[in-house]
């Protein structure tokens, strides 16, 4: 038994998995405790689902070691499965099954399930409880899938892109649910490519791409870093001469044109810095449009790490 075994929800070291000749997951470490939210953040095809499916026991890792609630998920799945809730990507229900029927079926597999009617009402599905699954909207299918993951009062839930295809209302509701799960001591491992989701919900974020972990830490750790976290952005006429500005800025402050017409300053930004910037703009006879002082966002970190090119 590991010393932290009773708190540990997921412990994975050096997970690797080759799928169809590609290294889908390469040397991934994960650590999640009960009552914590861990977000696996990455672009499409980064290996998030493969990692989650290893933890759920659907895939055997080629390399590495994984313990979920103290069990080996692949060989001891029969012991693990009753204790976890799984929301797979893209549904998972009989096409002809009615929403309420599917949830009741899963509830009847559990010793002390949540009340299916209450769950349907909570997730705004009461009115479609008799609608066949294939006629539900994408967002309704997602909500039903979430209900199915929660109905058995699990100790740990795996939510694979839980808010994909949901409207803003539903997304907010899911965020509330995840927050409630966390405070009731449920471990939550979620995958997402929505930065805001990871930033708002997660205690720890693991950024993955091409199967590898690029960065891991709390959102605060990830967004602070060397530049002390503050940045100033504004838009203006492209190709302004930055030399005089750089000369006027204090040491430890850098400025550059990130895209034509988009300027970015990072460093120890104080009220004087802003005044320096606006004075420089005045000398050029331009306005600092959309002048915004903010922290570096997780999105910035993410884009810096995964590259800014669009992928298919």
């Amino acid at each position: 038994m590991e010393p932290d075994a009773d708190r540990a929800a997921v412990r994975a070291q050096g997970l690797s998995k080759r799928l169809g000749g590609n290294l889908a997951v390469a040397d991934v470490d994960l650590s999640l405790d009960r009552g914590e939210v861990l977000a696996l953040l990455g672009p499409n095809g980064a290996g998030k689902t493969t990692t989650v499916e290893i933890c759920e026991g659907f895939l055997r890792p080629d390399d590495g070691r994984v313990r979920v609630l103290g069990t080996d998920p692949f060989t001891q799945g029969h012991r693990l499965r009753p204790r976890i809730g799984v929301m797979p990507q893209g549904g998972g229900a009989y096409p002809g099954v009615r929403a309420g029927e599917m949830l009741r079926l899963l509830a009847s597999c559990c010793a002390t399930p949540l009340d299916p009617e209450w769950l349907l009402a909570t997730l705004g599905l009461s009115e479609v409880r008799s609608t066949p699954y294939k006629r539900l909207s994408g967002g309704q299918q997602q909500r039903l899938s979430l209900a199915c993951a929660l109905v058995g009062r699990p100790e740990l839930v795996f939510l694979d892109e839980p808010t994909a295809g949901m409207d803003a209302h539903a997304r907010n509701l899911v965020w509330e649910l995840i927050t409630a799960l966390r405070s009731d001591g449920v471990g939550v491992l979620l995958t997402t490519h929505v930065m805001e989701e990871a930033e708002t919900l997660a205690d720890r974020v693991v950024i993955v791409d091409h199967g590898r972990v690029l960065a891991a830490g709390t959102p605060t750790e990830l967004t602070s870093g060397e530049e002390r976290g503050r940045e100033l952005r504004f838009t203006s006429r492209p190709a302004l001469d930055l030399e005089p500005l750089l000369a006027a800025l204090p040491e430890g402050c850098s400025a550059w044109e990130s895209r034509p017409g988009q300027y970015l300053l990072r460093g120890d930004i104080d009220p004087q810095t802003i005044s320096t910037v606006t004075a420089w703009c005045a000398r050029h006879g331009v306005l600092a449009d959309e002048l915004r002082l903010g922290r570096r966002t997780l999105e910035d970190v993410f884009l810096d790490l995964t590259g800014r090119e669009l992928r298919s």
Partner: peptide, 16 residues
């Protein structure tokens, strides 16, 4: 109200 009272999701897993 969708506020969830504490303990709403307290784990109680098990097989029927």
């Amino acid at each position: 109200s969708t506020a969830f009272p504490p303990g709403t999701f307290r784990p109680a897993p098990g097989r029927a």
